[in-house]
Structures are given as structure tokens and as C-alpha cells.
């Protein structure tokens, strides 16, 4: 019984939240890694692209709610998502036109593009704040729980409750669908194949008649879609606050680098590696240990490697370790 309790506690506090968070990071990292693969720079504005997409989604959600449209038990935000994606795609395509294309044509150093993306980050951050403000916004209006902790306790007779929030399930299901669609697109369609060819060898791709501007445009649209979906899922799961999305930048970059920049499969693996490490390192295992060892063996203090304030240190440490020992990432991305 105690063993089961320990497993339930672990599921409840580590495995389920980390899986949802990992899926959100993976989607974010996929966007970063795609941009990196095709446009060859680290997009610092990605966090704020996520924030912008989410902000638009929230606005449309409010509009739909005002109209009385609902897809209960699912949150209305899912219905608003396509609008958010459209607006974000329009924004990043416009940004590409106005900002990045100039440096691409000039074949500028990647670091100049990184810097331009910092400027874009500022502007998007400003636009997001302008559109929706700086408040903390909860916009999840669906059914809150798939499994309720109290009912779980009553049904199983265990001391430990298991809560499975619907946003977590939605996150995982959406992430699986999106990743499946993305890989199908990259692997099976003509455009997807030309994107991969462009990423592998730009000159060769150009020689074989691939239109680079089209590849770039498609990449931006996909990145915008991924960013909006990741941002909305993150916002549904936690809450929306513009600054939090800026702070997501570090774990997302860490995930993309751990998996190997430019490697989509790696980005997904990296997202889960970062999320699980972050949650496991900052989780207090005291409760779990208490179930597993005889009563008086349980230590008094928390059994926690790092306090939750230092969750960024976890992604950073993993990043440093990867840079030290395997700078190309687990799945051999680009390093030069």
C-alpha cells in the first residue's frame, strides 16, 4: 500500500507535471530549432512570439466567450487557437520582410541576426503588453480535472491523491498530434522535403531549384504555429503573464541545444530532458521517501536538491554540461 502511495505521489507531483511541461518546451524548442536549421540563427524573439500568439488567442477566446460560443468540456482557447496562429504568422512574416530579409540577402553574420531578433523581441514584448497588459491572466474555462484528487482517494482508498488536470491531458494530446503532423509534413510533402534539403545544404538546394524565400516563409509560418500552440498550452496549464514567456527562453534554448540545434527529433527529446530534470531536481522527495522507508528513518528536512527558485539553474547546468562534453547535442545537430 505504501509502495503504491509512493508511486501515486511521484506520478502526481513529478511525472504528470513534467510531461506536460516537457511537451510545452518541446513545441517551443521545435520552433527555435526549425528557425535555426533554415535561417541559421538563434531567435531570441521566440519567447515573445509565444506570448504574442497566446495574447491574441486569449483575446479571441474572450470574444468567443462573449458570443456564448463554447466547446465545453474543452477550453474555448482551443477554438481560438487558429486565429492566434493566423495573427502570429502574419506578424512573423511581416517581421521577416521588414527585418530579417535584409540581413539574409546581405549574408550578414548570424550574430547580427541574433541582435536583430533581440530588437524584434523588444517590439513584440511591447506589442503584447500593449494588446493585453501585464496582468496575470487565467483563461482556462473548460472542465478542470480529468481525475480529481479527492475522488481518486475515495475510489482507491489510497492516502495519496492523484490529480490529472484536463489542461495536462490536452497539452500531451495536442503535442503528439502537432509533432506527428510536423514530421509527416517534413518527411512526406514536397515543401517539407525542400525545407530539409535547404537545412542540410543551402547551396545544393538552391542549385536544384528550391525557392529560398518560399522555404523561409513556410518555416516562419510553422514556427509561428508551434509558438502559438506552445504558448497557449503553457498559458492554459499555468497562467498567462508576458514576462514568464521571456523567461521560458532559457529552458527552450537549452532544450534545443541539448537535442542538437537544427534537429527536430532532438528538440523534442531535449524538451523532456529539461522538463524532467527541472521538476525532479526541485521536487521535495520527502513525502515519497516517507512512504518507502520505516517511519523514524524519514529525515526531518526537505529532501530536495535545489529550491524551486533555482529551476533556471537546472536548464543552465544541463546546457553547460552539454556544451562541455557534446556541443553538437545528443542527436548531433549543427555546431558550426
Amino acid at each position: 500500500m505504501d509502495f503504491l502511495n509512493a508511486i501515486v505521489a511521484l506520478l502526481n507531483f513529478v511525472i504528470i507535471p513534467a510531461s506536460a511541461y516537457g511537451a510545452q518546451l518541446a513545441l517551443g524548442a521545435l520552433g527555435v530549432t526549425l528557425i535555426y536549421g533554415i535561417l541559421r540563427f538563434s531567435n531570441f524573439a521566440h519567447g515573445d512570439t509565444m506570448a504574442f500568439g497566446t495574447a491574441i488567442t486569449i483575446l479571441v477566446t474572450w470574444g468567443l466567450q462573449a458570443l456564448g460560443v463554447s466547446i465545453s468540456p474543452l477550453p474555448t482557447a482551443l477554438l481560438a487557437l487558429p486565429f492566434g496562429i493566423l495573427a502570429t504568422a502574419a506578424l512573423v512574416l511581416g517581421t521577416d520582410r521588414a527585418v530579417y530579409r535584409f540581413y539574409r540577402k546581405k549574408k550578414s553574420d548570424p550574430i547580427i541576426l541574433v541582435m536583430a531578433s533581440v530588437g524584434v523581441m523588444f517590439m513584440m514584448n511591447g506589442i503584447t503588453r500593449f494588446v493585453i497588459g501585464v496582468r496575470d491572466i487565467q483563461f482556462d474555462d473548460g472542465v478542470r480535472f480529468v481525475i480529481n484528487a479527492r475522488e481518486f482517494r475515495a475510489a482507491t482508498g489510497l492516502a495519496e491523491g492523484l490529480a490529472l488536470r484536463s489542461t495536462q491531458v490536452i497539452t500531451l494530446v495536442t503535442a503528439v498530434l502537432v509533432v506527428w503532423a510536423l514530421f509527416w509534413f517534413l518527411g512526406r510533402t514536397r515543401t517539407g522535403k525542400s525545407m530539409r534539403a535547404f537545412s542540410d545544404n543551402e547551396d545544393l538546394a538552391l542549385l536544384s531549384g528550391i525557392n529560398p524565400e518560399r522555404v523561409v516563409a513556410v518555416t516562419w509560418i510553422i514556427a509561428a504555429a508551434l509558438a502559438t500552440i506552445a504558448g497557449t498550452l503553457f498559458g492554459l496549464d499555468k497562467s498567462f503573464k508576458a514576462f514568464n514567456y521571456f523567461q521560458l527562453l532559457l529552458p527552450i534554448f537549452a532544450a534545443a541545444i541539448v537535442g542538437g540545434l537544427g534537429n527536430p527529433l532532438g528538440a523534442i527529446a531535449g524538451g523532456f530532458v529539461i522538463a524532467f530534470s527541472e521538476v525532479a531536481v526541485t521536487f521535495d522527495f520527502r513525502k515519497v521517501v516517507a512512504y518507502l522507508v520505516p517511519g523514524d528513518w524519514t529525515p526531518d528536512g526537505p529532501i530536495q536538491l535545489l529550491s524551486t527558485e533555482y529551476k533556471f539553474a537546472v536548464s543552465f547546468t544541463i546546457l553547460i554540461i552539454v556544451l562541455l562534453f557534446r556541443p553538437t547535442g545528443i542527436f548531433r545537430g549543427k555546431s558550426t
Partner: peptide, 28 residues
């Protein structure tokens, strides 16, 4: 020591990380 000598973006990302960590150490 860790991030230099690799591609130029890595330094940007690593410094972004150390920046946040130093500030959170001071906060906590």
C-alpha cells in the same frame, strides 16, 4: 571557459542563463 570556442550563438545563450541565475541567487 565553457561557451567560447563554439558557435557564436552559444555564448549569447549561456550568458542569458548565467545572467538569470546570478540574479536569482541574489534574490534568494
Amino acid at each position: 571557459k565553457t561557451a567560447l570556442g563554439l558557435r557564436s550563438d552559444y555564448l549569447a545563450i549561456a550568458t542569458l542563463g548565467i545572467g538569470e541565475i546570478i540574479v536569482s541567487v541574489l534574490r534568494n
